[in-house]
Design a protein around this nucleic acid. Sequence first.
DNA 1: GTTCTAGAAC
DNA 2: GTTCTAGAAC
Length: 196
Amino acid sequence: MSKRAMKNYETSQRPAKESKKHWSLGLLESMKDPDSIYKETDRLVVIRDKYPKARIHYLVLPKEEISSIFKLNKTHLDLIDELGSMYKSIKNDHTESDLVAGFHAIPSMQRLHMHVISKDMDSKCLKTKIHWNSFTTSFFIPFDDLLKKLEQDGCIERISNETHKALMSTPLKCNQCSFEPKNMPQLKQHLLSHVK
DNA sequence: GTTCTAGAAC
DNA sequence: GTTCTAGAAC
């Protein structure tokens, strides 16, 4: 290969720094990807979670540029109401499954998003204690709770780092019975007993 | 958010 | 020796 060819090869194969987008912007990409979209309305997009933590796991996002729950105020109550309607709609699509809807108290990904997830929590993508505790402790803010909070206080306040740390350190406990597994593999094995 | 992997836990 | 967890990623 000539020096010129080598240089062309290097510059074409190496990803340009400018094209690398931070992982926290991933949902904005998924919202534009037809393969990720489950359904869509004038104001909302529903996508399949890229790393589903249960057999059914959707994210409901507004098209409006709202970065997170911390940007919400009372002017958004009608939008939140639409999220609730979409939750109902998705439940109608999956009458065989037990679905819950809610928000993470500290989201990692940009763009306000509501999780709609089945209680089975049976998924190869569910791997860590943090995954588990983010859906099964009060780190998970149920839809109704967020709606009430917004109606009453006009905003959603950030939890402290100490509270965050404590919630993520909560000992493992089954979300469907009182079983307390010793570790994640044991929890995942146990969860199968509730679905099969 | 995930991936990778060192070293803790068993 | 193997399984499992938890912290760095420039």
